[in-house]
């Protein structure tokens, strides 16, 4: 197996970068307790996918996929693939919508919980759940 040659590593540079970015993003989403940081991580994670798509559209020696006005296309000219770019344009819009919705939710969470740290929110929720259980258990006992 001569897979791990320098040529293999450099030749797949875009994929390595994709993996590094993707893992960085996922790690932040999972490991960070701050809700805004999670959104940042999510953005990095999504950006890695944008990069994956855009980089596979590149063809070595390819030029921008714009045909000449007279539509006389020289068969010698190689064009890059524009489709992945278009797909990612859609995905970027989706990403922006997700980010803004996430941030809007964080604003509302801050108003209601007075914190944007996950562990503190969980603590408050735990207390609410325990209080609820205690109240309903007392009610059930009263009825029995």
């Amino acid at each position: 197996m001569d897979l791990m040659t320098a040529e293999f590593i450099l030749g797949h540079l875009n994929y390595w970068l994709f993996i590094v970015l993707m893992m960085t993003g996922l790690y932040i989403v999972i490991a960070k307790g701050n809700l805004v940081k999670k959104i940042v991580g999510l953005n990095i994670f999504q950006a890695s996918v944008f990069m994956l798509y855009i980089s596979v559209g590149k063809i070595s020696g390819g030029t921008a996929p714009i045909f000449p006005l007279d539509m006389k296309i020289d068969p010698e000219v190689v064009y890059s693939n524009p489709l992945p770019h278009v797909l990612i344009l859609t995905a970027i819009v989706v990403g922006i919508a997700t980010t803004s919705l996430g941030l809007a939710l964080i604003v509302r969470i801050r108003e209601e919980f007075d914190t944007i740290e996950e562990d503190q929110i969980e603590e408050i929720e735990q207390e609410m759940a325990l209080a609820e259980i205690a109240r309903h258990d007392a009610q059930s006992a009263g009825q029995a």
Binding site: T98, I109, F113
Partner: peptide
């Protein structure tokens, strides 16, 4: 509901 919506979003 807010925090569960946020978790679902993530």
């Amino acid at each position: 509901a807010l925090s569960s919506a946020y978790n679902y979003l993530i």
